[in-house]
């Protein structure tokens, strides 16, 4: 799966938080690569720094968090050195992000179409009619009828909202989609529907995914490679299959053992 040149290369990343009692290092010297068309899963408990990494990659981290050391290379270019204009152009078209709560990432007072149009007008200078056609196509791709374009976010179910966000994230054909717990707020059937769709879309469109979750079983189904985080460090990294079959680090084994499993359940 790994190609000679990774799409994204995070090197020795350190992220600190300023607190009244000095700085707290949330991400400690983390290095990871994501290859072309690869799904990398990042797993760990809450507070281990996995979301901080995702936000740092998109440069969405806000004070009191700051990146104190390390590099983030996207196709060889340093994301941390991007100018504001370059960064704005890169978001959505180079890399996009899907957050845990779709309700909070969609604007509640704009229709679905207006949110698409915003992005398409800004990035592609696309007119209203062309944007409508494009947005309709993208919605159809994630299984939402086109007439939903004129709905407001609150008129959609949680699963549909997350699909809208996913469609938006893929519209400008980014090379990387960062997904921070994209299905945690959804129930299992809808979760499976959406992830199954992402897998198929990756085959047709071709993009890499950084997938963040605390659900190891789900990650094992979805990711090509998995990295396990503990207290700001990556403690184990490897092929999904081998991490399932033969976890090396004690913490990974502990995470596996902590989950009740149904042995021999019917499919």
């Amino acid at each position: 799966m790994e190609t000679a040149k990774p799409l994204l290369s995070v090197q020795n990343l350190c992220v600190d938080y300023l607190t009244p009692n000095g700085t707290f290092r949330a991400v400690r010297n983390v290095s990871l690569d994501i290859g072309q068309n690869e799904i990398l899963g990042l797993a760990g408990e809450s507070g281990c720094g996995k979301s901080t990494i995702a936000f740092s990659i998109m440069r969405l981290h806000r004070p009191p968090a700051f990146i104190s050391d390390g590099k983030i290379l996207f196709e060889g270019e340093d994301v941390l050195a991007f100018s504001r204009r370059r960064l704005e152009a890169w978001r959505w078209s180079g890399a996009s992000m899907v957050f845990q709560s779709a309700m909070n990432s969609l604007n509640p007072v704009l229709t679905v179409f207006e949110q698409f149009r915003d992005m398409l007008a800004r990035h592609e200078k696309m007119g209203r009619d062309a944007a409508r056609v494009k947005a309709g196509e993208m919605l159809a791709m994630v299984g939402i009828p086109e007439d939903r374009l004129d709905s407001f976010p609150h008129q959609l179910s949680g699963g549909m909202r997350q699909r809208v966000v996913l469609a938006m994230a893929l519209t400008l054909k980014p090379r990387l989609v960062v997904m921070d717990e994209p299905t945690t707020a959804l129930d299992v059937v809808v979760q499976r529907e959406i992830l199954q769709e992402i897998v198929a879309l990756r085959k047709t469109l071709g993009f890499s995914v950084l997938f963040i979750t605390h659900d190891l079983a789900l990650m094992a189904q979805f990711a090509d490679r998995i990295a396990i985080m503990l207290e700001g460090r990556i403690v184990e990294q490897g092929e999904a299959r081998s991490l399932v079959a033969d976890p090396q680090h004690e913490y990974t084994r502990k995470l596996w053992a902590a989950m009740p499993r149904i042995e021999g359940a019917a499919a």
């Binding site: 992830l195 897998v199 079983a217 789900l218 094992a220 189904q221 999904a240 359940a265 499919a267």
Partner: peptide, 8 residues
Amino acid sequence: VPDPAKRF
């Protein structure tokens, strides 16, 4: 239900 043995 997520099952690590079944890949998407």
